[in-house]
Design a binder for these strands. Structure first.
Lengths: 204, 204
DNA sequence: CGAAAAAACTAACGTACGTACGTTTATATA
DNA sequence: TATATAAACGTACGTACGTTAGTTTTTTCG
């Protein structure tokens, strides 16, 4: 009779992931020692190896699971709105910001610890990033096709939008002045109507 | 007879800084060993200590020098254009992109290795970042004051603009499809006129 | 040139790293 | 209850780390 993992083990495995995110976010992957990680979980360093194959695999799993969730939830968010480019773009912006604010640590690690991945792991994650970017590019392209958007270069524009939205992670504090909804609304306006210019006939 | 640093020493010190930027950019501060660094320079690890006090001080110096240069050159760029908010904003965007593309490594390190700084070093650098952000906020505020810009929240807008512009560093390749001038122009339009919307009367 | 200082070298320090090993404890099913 | 196995433990491995000390070479300058 086979047993995959007992309930205690599942809890520990989850705790390792949570602690890993926290420590990698705080100190960087290279600077996180497995002894620190184990201590955060409350076990010995060697016991980690009942749950992870190597330190490198832990990093890869954390990032891959994050990208899987991001891709799936993005599809869900886009499927839930009317099939017009503007509505889909609004949904994308809303989803991107909300997801990124809720998973600050995951996002940071997935963006800035890629260099710590071994080549084949790196390639896998970069492909998933490309897939995510393509979803936004597709929204922009469809908007151009239906005449709703005027975009010179949808790829670069998509990169810029993503950079702007992801930037929220660097300053957002839950106890801050703005609610998540206000931040979403503010950035939707920045994307749709520009950051600074008067433009009365286009403002919603 | 006192000697501060001979020409050979100056050359080595500069080489250490250059190699440090390269290796920290590539592998992260924690993952860069001083033996790697020395080997890149072509000396022994212990010889580094003729030029740096500690590894931590090297990181701090690299970031501080970068921030000094950024702040000074920003002032120069803003002083060189007519004193209208729109012109100053265009100058800021142009300068920010050009500087960031030329100093990709410095920028990356100054943005993402802050966590590797000891507390008082960290505080010093964060204060310099604040000063930089304040320069853009001041431009936006003056634009609002003179009626040129319509901005609900100049601080958040400044953060968003900076995130968008800095994002260029993540995808720019010198041999790529777009020239730096084209990238500057493209992003100036994104900031001034929005990323997607039709807005005929505001387009330049 | 010769003195002095800068800057390189070799060797070693103590510490901490990721990981492997063999063993023990806890627990879920047959 | 017996058994299989997950999951913890403690110890040790070989390596690499940042840094210091002492010595030798190179460069500068009166």
């Amino acid at each position: 009779m086979e047993r995959i993992a007992g309930p205690k083990g599942l809890r520990t495995a989850a705790a390792i992931r949570r602690a890993g995110l926290k420590l990698i976010y705080r100190h960087g992957f290279g600077a996180m020692s497995l002894r620190d990680l184990a201590s955060e979980v409350g076990i010995q360093a060697s016991s980690l190896y009942n749950h992870i194959r190597t330190k490198q695999d832990l990093l890869f799993d954390l990032i891959r699971e994050h990208m899987d969730a991001l891709l799936a939830q993005t599809d869900a968010a886009l499927a839930a709105v009317p099939d017009t480019a503007t509505e889909r773009l609004r949904a994308f912006i809303r989803h991107h910001i909300v997801y990124h604010l809720e998973k600050k640590q995951d996002v940071f690690i997935a963006n800035f610890e890629l260099r710590s991945l071994e080549p084949q792991h790196y390639a896998t994650i970069v492909a998933m990033r490309r897939a995510y970017e393509s979803k936004l590019i597709a929204v922009l392209d469809s908007g151009v096709a239906e005449g709703a958007f005027d975009i010179r270069d949808t790829r670069i524009t998509a990169y810029s939008i993503l950079a702007m939205l992801t930037g929220v992670c660097t300053w957002y504090k839950p106890e801050g002045r703005l609610t998540k909804s206000e931040i979403v609304e503010l950035h939707t306006n920045l994307v749709l109507h520009g950051c600074v210019a008067h433009c009365d006939d286009a403002r919603s």
